[in-house]
Simulated assay, not measured.
Amino acid sequence: MKKKTFVLVIIALVAHSFSSMAQRVDRTNFKAGIHAGVPFGDISDFSNFELGLDLGYHWGVSELIDAGISTGFMNAFINNDTLDFGPLEVQGDFPNIQYVPVAGAFRLYPTYDFKLGADIGYAVGINDGNSGGFYVRPMVGANISSTTEINISYVKVSDDYDFSMAALGILFLF
């Protein structure tokens, strides 16, 4: 009798888990927003401001987890037309440093209004001489309404130089 009750309880719990997961999995979110960043590392020698566009699509995996894809555009503005490479000073018209990230996205929701996550993939270099590189962007976010999120993130592109920045962004969910 105990074994039969135990099996029925397990079946009921599994059925409940699948039904709540199905409700979450059916929910998808398109996200679009902007962010502003402060570069540091090697890139801070050339730029002191970055603006970007964030786009993503997430699927609910469970009540606590979303997974999806993300992309966007990042533009680090070059300070001036003279760059100093130690003993070598180069003058000219230098392009802004630009990337288009293509990444997988993962979000963990400890509460409805708070999230932790990361985007991991490849950042495609857009400007001349920019080969792109491995892209990682861990982030912490909070809902400020049911359709608006504010987040803080660290962006790292492993290229021939260190493209790193801290960013503050706002996303709108559709």
Score class of each variant (00 low, 15 high):
residue 1 M to D: 11
residue 4 K to I: 10
residue 8 L to I: 05
residue 9 V to R: 00
residue 11 I to Y: 10
residue 13 L to S: 12
residue 13 L to C: 14
residue 14 V to H: 02
residue 15 A to R: 03
residue 17 S to R: 02
residue 17 S to I: 14
residue 18 F to A: 11
residue 19 S to H: 13
residue 19 S to K: 06
residue 20 S to W: 00
residue 21 M to H: 06
residue 22 A to R: 08
residue 22 A to P: 10
residue 24 R to L: 05
residue 24 R to S: 12
residue 24 R to Q: 14
residue 25 V to H: 13
residue 25 V to C: 08
residue 26 D to N: 14
residue 26 D to E: 15
residue 28 T to Y: 13
residue 29 N to A: 14
residue 30 F to Q: 06
residue 35 H to C: 07
residue 35 H to R: 13
residue 36 A to S: 14
residue 38 V to Y: 15
residue 38 V to E: 12
residue 41 G to E: 00
residue 43 I to L: 15
residue 51 L to M: 13
residue 51 L to A: 14
residue 51 L to P: 07
residue 54 D to Q: 12
residue 54 D to W: 10
residue 54 D to P: 04
residue 55 L to R: 00
residue 59 W to F: 15
residue 59 W to E: 03
residue 60 G to I: 00
residue 61 V to Y: 12
residue 61 V to E: 02
residue 64 L to R: 09
residue 64 L to H: 14
residue 67 A to N: 02
residue 67 A to Q: 01
residue 67 A to L: 14
residue 69 I to R: 01
residue 74 M to D: 15
residue 74 M to V: 07
residue 77 F to L: 08
residue 78 I to N: 03
residue 78 I to F: 09
residue 78 I to M: 13
residue 79 N to E: 10
residue 82 T to V: 14
residue 84 D to A: 05
residue 88 L to V: 14
residue 88 L to N: 07
residue 88 L to E: 07
residue 91 Q to P: 01
residue 91 Q to Y: 11
residue 91 Q to L: 03
residue 91 Q to C: 06
residue 92 G to W: 00
residue 96 N to S: 12
residue 98 Q to I: 08
residue 99 Y to I: 07
residue 100 V to M: 11
residue 100 V to F: 09
residue 100 V to W: 09
residue 104 G to C: 02
residue 105 A to R: 06
residue 105 A to D: 12
residue 106 F to A: 01
residue 107 R to F: 09
residue 108 L to E: 03
residue 110 P to Y: 05
residue 111 T to Q: 03
residue 111 T to K: 01
residue 111 T to G: 01
residue 112 Y to S: 07
residue 114 F to T: 06
residue 117 G to C: 05
residue 117 G to T: 05
residue 118 A to I: 13
residue 119 D to G: 03
residue 121 G to K: 05
residue 122 Y to P: 00
residue 122 Y to E: 02
residue 124 V to N: 04
residue 125 G to N: 08
residue 125 G to W: 11
residue 128 D to A: 12
residue 129 G to V: 10
residue 130 N to V: 12
residue 131 S to Q: 11
residue 131 S to Y: 10
residue 131 S to I: 08
residue 132 G to K: 00
residue 133 G to F: 06
residue 136 V to N: 07
residue 136 V to F: 12
residue 137 R to C: 11
residue 137 R to P: 05
residue 138 P to G: 00
residue 138 P to S: 00
residue 139 M to A: 11
residue 139 M to G: 06
residue 140 V to Q: 04
residue 140 V to M: 12
residue 143 N to F: 13
residue 144 I to D: 08
residue 146 S to Y: 10
residue 147 T to G: 07
residue 147 T to H: 11
residue 150 I to N: 02
residue 153 S to M: 05
residue 154 Y to H: 11
residue 154 Y to E: 01
residue 154 Y to W: 15
residue 163 F to S: 08
residue 164 S to H: 10
residue 165 M to W: 07
residue 166 A to C: 08
residue 167 A to M: 09
residue 168 L to N: 08
residue 169 G to V: 09
residue 169 G to C: 09
residue 171 L to I: 04
residue 172 F to G: 02
residue 172 F to D: 01
residue 173 L to E: 14
residue 173 L to D: 14
residue 173 L to Q: 11
residue 174 F to V: 04
